[in-house]
Design a protein around this nucleic acid. Structure first.
Lengths: 226, 226
DNA sequence: GGAGATCGTTGCGCTAGCGCAAATTCGGAC
DNA sequence: GTCCGAATTTGCGCTAGCGCAACGATCTCC
């Protein structure tokens, strides 16, 4: 049931049943096969989504064609609120990297829900605010930290979010190419490859094609935090 | 009157009188002399502000002590909502670079206003969303663009926000050291100085101690946009 | 199980930008 | 007017990271 999904969302978890029920009733389920776009940068922001199944990639492409990845996301997560609330265009691509299912609310439905359920609007505000602070931290990181540290932090974030225990180690349970890591951290696939190779020699990680396993979290954390 | 100020705020401008009056009635005026902090990074986020008079600097300092500037702001502007809504700590310093006056709402007052005026909550959501998109653009810029382009864009942003006509040219009406520009664009004061010197030789700008005047906007825009 | 495509590695040269240090300019205080 | 401190400029050497190119590894699809 949709309401169960909403209850697992970080920012909606403790809303009253009645509010969640109203929200759930207004949602439509959308299925998106691997590789398809849930929405595309520049498209009119018609819907707000809660991702229910499958992983997806949030990316942005610069006018010169260089892509950056803003996030690799997995369920349950609220997404598209920023564009949908403004009635603007999506500022990002969201591409399914697995078969996905998402609850969708149309722009007008969303506005109506937020107007009639002030608690919901407050939660949405908290959610966007939380995302803002995270982005601000990444911005500072990019402005002030070396590649090595940014990469270490990206791996730790990913393992927190999508880690799967693997003996004493933890594998990031996402297909994760060197190019992806480069676009997540603002560097190039060459530098990522060289850095991972060095870490693999020192036993901090193991890695393979589109796969990274963290073996020595303390040492990686030390690189990440200084 | 406070309500007049709110009506000049981008995101509150067209709210009904009744809503603005309720908000204005709950505000307190706070005066902050030049150099003092309106709030500090890590402080409990007790208030939401609307800056009414004077300019201020939003900055963040990294654990290693390197500072970055997130923005140089002038009235009227809404500020601190992100921290105040979460009841968290301010993620930034806000320092008065002139004598400032600001309307202040206490955390609980803000929450109460947002709960009882859904339109207000929606506007706040739009505001934070707009800021998010701007920050995301700066993030992409930092990840993908050269210093020269980032600097050109920063100057154009500043002149849009605080430009004062000066004959055929436009001067940025803020004390603006090379160090400030460096911290705004994620580079060093040396690179800023060298770049500005080169631009001055080609007649794109004029500059002096803590002062920059743009002379050739088309050429600067071309550097900024490619 | 072979061919082709995709992904990853690494040598090598290069460049954008860093950052020290010294010189210079500017503004304000007295 | 003079002095002092802060801001700026610029020479110089350096390095982190870029990016090409060539090669190697791995997966997938017949």
């Amino acid at each position: 049931m949709h309401i169960e999904l909403l209850r697992r969302c970080q920012y909606f978890a403790d809303l009253p049943d009645q509010t969640l029920a109203a929200a759930a009733a207004a949602a439509q389920l959308r299925r998106v096969p691997t590789g398809d776009f849930i929405f595309r940068q520049g498209e009119s922001a018609s819907h707000f989504y809660v991702l229910a199944e499958g992983h997806a990639r949030l990316s942005q492409i610069s006018p010169e064609g260089r892509q950056i990845i803003m996030g690799l996301i997995g369920p349950p997560i609220e997404i598209g609120i920023i564009a949908a609330i403004q009635g603007a265009v999506y500022p990002l691509d969201l591409q399914a990297t697995q078969d996905c299912q998402a609850l969708a609310w149309e722009h007008r439905t969303l506005i109506r829900l937020l107007e009639s359920h002030p608690m919901l609007a407050l939660r949405a505000l908290r959610m966007v605010s939380g995302r803002f602070v995270e982005l601000q931290d990444r911005y500072r990181e990019l402005a002030t930290e070396r590649v090595e540290r940014r990469l270490a932090r990206a791996l730790l974030r990913l393992v927190n979010q999508s880690g799967r225990p693997d003996g004493d180690d933890v594998t990031i349970a996402l297909p994760l190419a060197r190019q992806d890591l480069a676009e997540l951290t603002g560097t190039t696939l060459y530098t990522v490859s060289r850095t991972l190779s060095a870490w693999e020699s020192s036993g901090i990680i193991r890695s393979g094609r589109e796969r990274v396993t963290l073996c020595d979290l303390p040492r990686l954390s030390e690189i990440a935090e200084g």
